[in-house]
Amino acid sequence: MTDLILLLIKASVIYGGLLGCAALMTLAERKVSAWMQYRIGPNRVGPFGLLQPLADGVKFIFKEDVTPDGANPWMFRLAPLMAAVPAMMTVAVVPFAGDVTLFGYDFGPLSIADLDIGILFVLAIGGLGVYGVILGGWASNSKYSLLGGLRASAQMISYELSLILIVLSIVAMTGSLDLREIVAAQTGTFLGVLPDWNVFQQPVAFVLFVIATFAETNRLPFDFAECEPELVGGFHTEYSSMKFALFFLGEYCAMIVMACLTTVLFLGGAEVPYWADAPWFLQLPAFMVKAGFFCFLFIWVRWTLPRFRFDQLMHLGWKVFLPVALVNLFLTGLLISF
């Protein structure tokens, strides 16, 4: 029984944190883009505009909920859920910090579930997020939405392949699918000076992985599912009100999860550099700094790079990423066996 209560507490803390971070990301997106363009950004609601996400949420709730004529009503309702829920589910296995001791009570490690197949779980459930986009595009009964959905499906399949191959090379090095063990394998030092993080051991895989996460989460150099100039709004053209907000939430949650995953796989997760036994209240900020950097990177890149062309995206995915990832996996296998 106490286990169940413990789990509930941890789940509510982590999900509260995730949703809070997603809300903050929407604000950060606007703030950072403003700074990059010599502007100030939202600053009217609350100090520094910190309550802006709340105001946005209220606005979303009170917007009219339009279902277009000829749309498939069930699929139209299901799609936003299918976009948001998988993204939120994947955060369950991310190890945010080591054992938490608070008020003299041991709460265990700071993650909801400790699965043996953690990384597979993330990839499997995360891969389901594409259904929200495809079905949303199909159910809207609109050519723009359909095109957006189709593009999203083609893109996500192409890049998921490379993503899995890259993850496989990390898994092969660690010998486990458990995220906790992948983190544990990255303690210590590499070449005497650097922390023993996979980013130094697998630099090619790191670069490929970060780029592939952009494609996987439909972020800007690869945001063909939305593609405002050509497809109005892509798959969510016809969506309004809270359904649209759910798509948004799913996108930002997926970004945060991908940032967490990059941290876990390549930057030693919650490890404080050169201090393997750091207490949890130092590990958690360390994790948040690392993951926060990748969250910032998502925004940073979005406001820097223009959108690719779709054929360029496919070219990059199949003719560059896949071979490089395969070669990388092969070399990793060679290195391990000798």
């Binding site: 403003a34 700074w35 990059m36 363009q37 010599y38 502007r39 940073w300 820097t304």
Partner: peptide, 11 residues
Amino acid sequence: TFKKIFQPAIT
């Protein structure tokens, strides 16, 4: 773009 973040806003 990172350098531009620290320039004063003209708003």
